[in-house]
Design a protein around this nucleic acid. Structure first.
Length: 403
RNA sequence: GUGGGUGUAGCUCAGUUGGUUAGAGCGCCAGUUUGUGGUACUGGAGGCCGGGGGUUCGAGACCCCUCACUCACCCCA
């Protein structure tokens, strides 16, 4: 992973969400296992893919597979005043078989707001993410999918309804999907198989099982997105990988990524999470965006390229006592001018070659003649090699004018 | 977890049905230019041929095991 690019991405994200009042939170990489168990034992992420170890005292600890649970834990521990708005840049660990866009250690930039039930929060965060992708990164080939999964009670009732339906068409499903009927019926809806999709075309829709409150919430969210001019498609078959979601869930997919793992961001509302972890009922909303996948999307669209840094000047020293290269570099660096050098007292030619390779705009040359006259020679490396002699004491000022 | 592909020089890759000291391009180092880059020419360094075991007179090539990378399924960011 290109770390300079990740740094630039993170800085841009910090600026962007900082203007909306989100402050960074750093949570532990290692957490007690039960922090994650309480948020989704029924999910692959938690039950199959977590790196779990026994600690020295015999307790179980895990490398975090995601960050929302840690944020909820931190909320319970420190009791910040709601609305608590935080962003994070976290590495996550999942023991999966790696492929393009899916790594065992990946990074996410994410946002969480805890203590707000207002659908405006849903809208604000989705818009923030959409604007980050489309305005800050200037990605163009994206689409936003959104749906509501309502409250847990109606969700459970719907799951039963759906299971009954699926049992009736089990024979027509792709075998791998048929196996999910009893364990993850909702996941069958999200199948990539055309055979399965055809068989479930007439499946009951959750929209028909939603409470009036859930409908009202979702309507407010859609109205907000419409007003903000954010395009979206309602995908009532959208399924999230973590159990704690309620009401609004969404996903942003890149249409430019040439791989099967093309979801670059996703999230939703999790009104039951804080309570499930032992706190008072507290609403929340958040999303995570996969850094590696976002960069894949940027590559595919040829945007957000970062050019490697180049030094302002390269100091070349030769002759009898070439140790002044050390002093020159430090002097320049202390004045805010980036300066690099070669080592091992290499030949003038070799040093010049290194200067060229560094991409520096200027070479600062010092040899016996310069030292005797208390001057240095400044050579323009990008033009046709014009050289000027400058008094040693004037070097900093001279370079500042040039740069 | 299930399948497919690939591992040879720093990088990208050749290596003929198993046969002698394993090659190329680029890059790197040096020289042509005793204090000057980008071009050109000349020379040079650099490889437990991913690891282990086996077959064979002989293995980079064949067989088995293993590891890593990679693509898809699954899953997800």
């Amino acid at each position: 992973m290109d770390s300079a690019r990740v740094r630039a991405l993170t800085d841009a994200f910090c600026d962007h969400v900082g203007r909306a009042g989100y402050r960074q939170i750093v949570t532990p990489i290692l957490e007690s296992l039960d922090v994650f168990l309480r948020v989704g034992e029924g999910t692959d992420v938690v039950s199959k893919e977590m790196y779990v170890f026994e600690d020295r005292d015999g307790s179980q600890v895990a490398l975090r597979p995601e960050t929302t649970a840690s944020v909820a834990r931190a909320f319970l521990q420190h009791h910040p005043l709601p609305p608590w708005k935080v962003w994070y840049f976290s590495q996550h660990f999942r023991h999966e078989k790696p492929q393009k866009g899916r790594l065992r250690q990946h990074h996410q930039l994410g946002l969480e707001v805890i203590g707000v039930a207002d659908p405006d929060a849903d809208v604000e965060m989705i818009v923030l993410l959409w604007d980050f992708y489309t305005r800050v990164l200037v990605l163009a080939h994206l689409h936003l999918e959104i749906t509501s999964i309502g409250e847990p009670v109606s969700r459970v009732a719907y799951a039963e309804l759906l299971t009954t339906f699926l049992r009736g068409v089990a024979d027509e499903l792709e075998p791998v999907d048929a196996e999910k009927i009893e364990t993850h019926p909702l996941r069958v809806l999200d199948s990539k198989s055309s055979q399965t999709r055809a068989a479930i075309a007439a499946a009951p829709k959750f929209a028909d099982s939603m409470s009036s409150d859930a409908v009202a919430h979702f309507t407010r969210v859609r109205d907000g997105l419409d007003a903000a001019g954010v395009p979206y498609v309602v995908n009532d078959r959208l399924v999230r990988g973590l159990d704690y979601y309620t009401h609004t869930v969404f996903e942003v997919v890149s249409d430019a990524i040439d791989a099967s793992q093309s979801t670059i961001g996703g999230g939703g509302r999790y009104d039951g999470l804080v309570e499930a972890m032992g706190g008072r009922p507290t609403p929340g909303f958040g999303f995570g965006s996969g850094v590696e996948r976002v960069l894949l999307a940027c590559d595919a669209e040829d945007v957000f390229a970062q050019t490697p840094p180049v030094p302002d000047c390269f100091v070349v020293s030769f002759g009898g006592d070439a140790t002044d290269v050390r002093d020159l570099c430090r002097e320049l660096q202390r004045s805010g001018i980036s300066a690099e050098r070669a080592y091992d007292q290499r030949s003038p030619k070799a040093q010049m070659k290194a200067a060229d390779r560094s991409g520096a705009r200027y070479a600062v040359l010092s040899g016996d003649d310069e030292r005797a006259a208390a001057t240095v020679t400044v050579r323009d490396l990008l033009g046709d090699g014009e050289q000027v002699s400058v008094a040693r004491t004037e070097l900093i000022d001279h370079l500042r004018k040039l740069l």
